[in-house]
Design a binder for these strands. Structure first.
Lengths: 192, 192
DNA sequence: TGAATTTTGAAATGATTGTTTCAGAATTAT
DNA sequence: ATAATTCTGAAACAATCATTTCAAAATTCA
């Protein structure tokens, strides 16, 4: 029998994700990747595939991680509007925490317009968040804590598109207080 | 005396901008540029400089064009809240019109985090829009058509960050109706 | 027209790109 | 231990990258 693969693939993908995140797909060279992952290019091609396949796996890794995090958080709250509020403030925290912006958003602008495969992955990720939010909104409406004429699907899209802009604003202004203000403003205006 | 430069620089920059817009900074090769601009690389380097300098000029060209457009539009309207409404619906139109997204936003995510010079250019562009919007909001408040406790600076940031997200949403879903709905929702919620 | 000067085209630069090759080291079950 | 198999490291691959070189063509004013 033969030997088995030596390195931890999940760990390697996380290293690769970190590089793609910082430099973008086109800004990342295979050398950047092998340096960060600490494996030889032959090993990389034998196990995880070429640059594009590796990138796809990074996206899947990133979106899966976020999905799990979201599902766990949902369990903590007993009331839907508390969960919504918390979600929005959490996003604001994440925005100001990593200066690079969201990997999914960066990729949406850089790669996705010309690549239907990657676009589909990001759309799925987006749809998951949309389902998550619209469900909470629907519950809040049913419980009478939000207005009866609220459109859950529309409001979910609205929330998602709003915090997407926070990432750009933070890259340009690097002002945490501004992001927190915007989050508070959104909560005040939409969820009461 | 010597001969004068043969090609129209402004026209060449517009061609270059088109390429950078579609492919991003790192995704664009000098060959892509010389092909599109229809000039030899030696001419390009002699007049407009290297890849980075050319990119800077493209950003300046893009932001200047937008600034002029914005200033012209402002004169047309007599009431501030009509100007605001029109601004928001115009943005929605632009979002669904070009499938590549906004050049400034793409660049903010791809290049700006590691490049302070380009970041400053984009920040200026952002600040201009912010000043434009907050001024309109301030006028609307003074005229009593918007609530007295409105914070013009905050609301301007809020509007900007919200429509930024529309670009991503449109890249992923390609649904014009959705964008129009979001614009209408924003007008309904914030400007009445 | 002719001398002066600049732009231009094509080729060449060395560096870097993504990917492949392959011999030898490493690991396994017998 | 041995034979079978797989992984690994370093080098090599052609292609493309951004940029430079330079002689020849083009344009100007006198």
């Amino acid at each position: 029998m033969a030997r088995t693969v030596a390195f931890d693939q999940d760990q390697a993908i996380e290293k690769a994700l970190d590089v793609f995140w910082r430099k973008g797909y086109n800004g990342t060279s295979m050398r950047d990747l092998t340096d960060a992952m600490q494996i030889n290019s032959s090993s990389l091609y034998n196990t995880l595939g070429d640059k594009h396949q590796l990138f796809v796996q990074c996206i899947k890794h990133y979106t899966r991680k976020r999905r799990i995090l979201l599902e766990e958080r949902a369990k903590v709250f007993d009331s839907p509007q508390k969960a919504l509020e918390s979600f929005i403030h959490d996003v604001a925290d994440v925005v100001v925490k990593d200066a690079q912006g969201c990997f999914a958003i960066k990729t949406a602008f850089e790669v996705s317009p010309d690549n239907k495969g990657i676009q589909a992955l990001l759309k799925d990720d987006n749809d998951f968040t949309h389902t998550f939010l619209s469900k909470l909104i629907r519950e809040a409406v049913e419980q009478g804590v939000m207005k009866k004429d609220t459109d859950p699907d529309l409001l979910a899209d609205y929330i998602i598109s709003t915090y997407t802009g926070w990432y750009e604003l933070y890259i340009l202004h690097k002002d945490p207080a501004k992001i927190k203000q915007l989050a508070a403003f959104m909560v005040y205006h939409l969820l009461r």
